[in-house]
């Protein structure tokens, strides 16, 4: 086991390195830097600096790191890449275009649908444009394209109102006419993500209702659906974790608690909960790390104070 390898590193750092190294291949650079998806360039740069205090190879100059040396190099180079990509507007746009899932997650956190908002235009522009479109639409070669555009614009309207299932119908129609249409394909992915977000929310609601009725089994299923549909639904993840813990399944509870923390890294309550679960599962070093993080974020938080005595010292 890599954690047991004898090198000049303490256990916490080893675990951190292993955890981050596992994420090197992941496409979500925001997640890799430990910032919320869609974080601003300044946040990204700050997170990169903070991470470099831990993971810059120079911090371990001349040390025996064994297999961790390679991992550390890999991690730092990936951090550089993440910072370079996300703090430059142009590169960030290219990256987001290539990774629609990340873009959707970024939207979900920043709550903007900027890409779908039509730009404000003057009336004459609008009139001239529509006249031109109609004239072109009558041309037989363009009829097909026009039809696709119609479906697309309808789909966009529905997306604007967050009616994703209707949007999917229109997009399917468009895809039947022109299966290779790039915008349709891209939007299909977006819409599916959007639909997932909505589904996640409604599943979460169902779960709460089921809980009120006392039907834990159904609630648990609905909660898991909610988390699966949107991994960033931290409320659902946290609730799932609490429910699982109550039902005595500490291992799975911890994994959902981790999801909650990943989705909302600055939430102290979630972190303390995770730390507690990890501590009970015997993963002392990880538990300590998360508790320390919670203390760092808000030392005066009631949860921190409440559990501080129980969890400290490790």
């Amino acid at each position: 086991m890599a954690v047991e390898e004898k090198v000049d590193l303490d256990d916490v750092r080893k675990e951190e390195i292993l955890a981050l190294d596992a994420k090197v291949a992941s496409n979500n650079l925001f997640e890799f830097l430990g910032v919320p998806s869609g974080a601003s360039a300044d946040e990204v740069r700050a997170a990169f600096r903070e991470a470099s205090r831990k993971f810059h190879p120079d911090k371990y100059f001349g040390k025996n790191l064994g297999s961790f040396r390679g991992k550390l190099d890999r991690i730092f180079k990936r951090l550089v890449e993440a910072n370079q990509t996300l703090s430059d507007p142009e590169k960030r746009e290219v990256y987001l275009a290539a990774n629609p899932f990340v873009r959707a997650a970024a939207r979900a956190t920043t709550n903007t649908n900027a890409a779908f908002k039509p730009e404000a235009r003057t009336e004459t522009e609008e009139a001239r444009d529509s006249e031109r479109r109609q004239r072109l639409a009558r041309h037989p070669y363009l009829a097909k394209a026009t039809k696709v555009q119609e479906y697309l614009s309808k789909a966009k309207e529905h997306v604007g109102r967050q009616e994703y299932s209707q949007a999917v119908t229109h997009l399917n129609n468009a895809a039947q006419i022109d299966p290779l249409h790039a915008e349709v394909k891209a939007m299909m992915i977006e819409v599916r993500k959007g639909a997932d977000l909505v589904r996640s929310e409604s599943s979460f609601k169902h779960a709460l209702e089921a809980l009120n009725r006392g039907d834990e089994e159904l609630a648990l299923q609905a909660l898991k659906t909610a988390v699966n549909a949107n991994p960033l639904n931290f409320k659902a993840a946290h609730k799932t974790s609490m429910l699982l813990e109550r039902r005595g399944d500490a291992r799975e509870a911890a994994s959902f608690a981790l999801k909650a923390v990943e989705a909302a890294p600055r939430n102290v309550e979630f972190r303390v909960h995770l730390a507690r679960l990890l501590g009970e599962a015997g993963m002392k070093a990880m538990a300590k790390k998360h508790f320390d993080e919670a203390v760092r974020i808000d030392p005066d938080h009631p949860e921190v104070k409440k559990h501080g005595k129980k969890l400290w010292p490790f």
Binding site: R49, S52, R53, H56, D58, K59, F61, G62
Partner: peptide, 13 residues
Amino acid sequence: EALTNEASDVVLL
């Protein structure tokens, strides 16, 4: 000093 002394808190990017 930063490279050879563990206690140092300096990181150069």
